[in-house]
Simulated scan of single mutants.
Amino acid sequence: MEVATKLAFRYLAAFGLGETLSFVTGSSVDDLRRDPALRKKVDALLKKEYEGAKVIIKDWARAVAEIAAVLIDHGQISGEQAKEIYSRQLNGRPT
């Protein structure tokens, strides 16, 4: 969460991708403590992206589980094997 919070802070306050063109430097933790409005925006962005990540994980759970099983059994997986697993799920075939 620390890395995600820092990235969200930079996205909103340092890269000019928030609602304002203001630029903030320094420690994101210090700036978040001093600016409740920025803290609220960072929190909202983190919640939005967390919900999106949960949807992706849910949508691809079968493929992820199969890839995990291959990794457990063999210690590695090729790009082609992973691509085939994802393709099967994408095309509705059993993984």
Rank of each mutant, 00 (worst) to 15 (best):
E2F: 05
V3T: 12
K6R: 12
F9V: 05
L12R: 03
A14M: 11
A14Y: 04
F15D: 14
F15V: 07
G16P: 02
L17A: 11
L17T: 04
E19R: 10
T20R: 04
L21P: 00
L21K: 14
L21M: 08
S22N: 13
S22P: 00
F23C: 13
F23R: 15
F23K: 15
V24T: 10
V24N: 06
G26A: 07
S28L: 03
D30H: 09
D31L: 11
L38I: 09
K40D: 15
K40W: 07
V42G: 03
V42L: 06
L45I: 04
L45P: 00
K47E: 15
K48D: 15
G52T: 03
A53W: 09
I57D: 07
K58C: 06
K58R: 15
K58D: 14
D59A: 14
D59W: 02
W60Y: 13
A61C: 07
R62M: 12
A65S: 14
E66T: 09
I67P: 00
I67V: 15
I67W: 00
A69Y: 04
A69R: 14
V70D: 02
L71M: 08
G75F: 04
G75M: 06
Q76S: 15
I77V: 14
G79A: 10
G79N: 09
A82D: 03
A82Q: 04
K83S: 14
K83W: 11
K83I: 04
K83D: 13
I85H: 00
Y86T: 10
S87E: 11
S87F: 07
R88S: 08
L90R: 14
L90T: 07
G92M: 03
G92W: 04
R93M: 10
T95S: 06
T95R: 03
T95V: 15
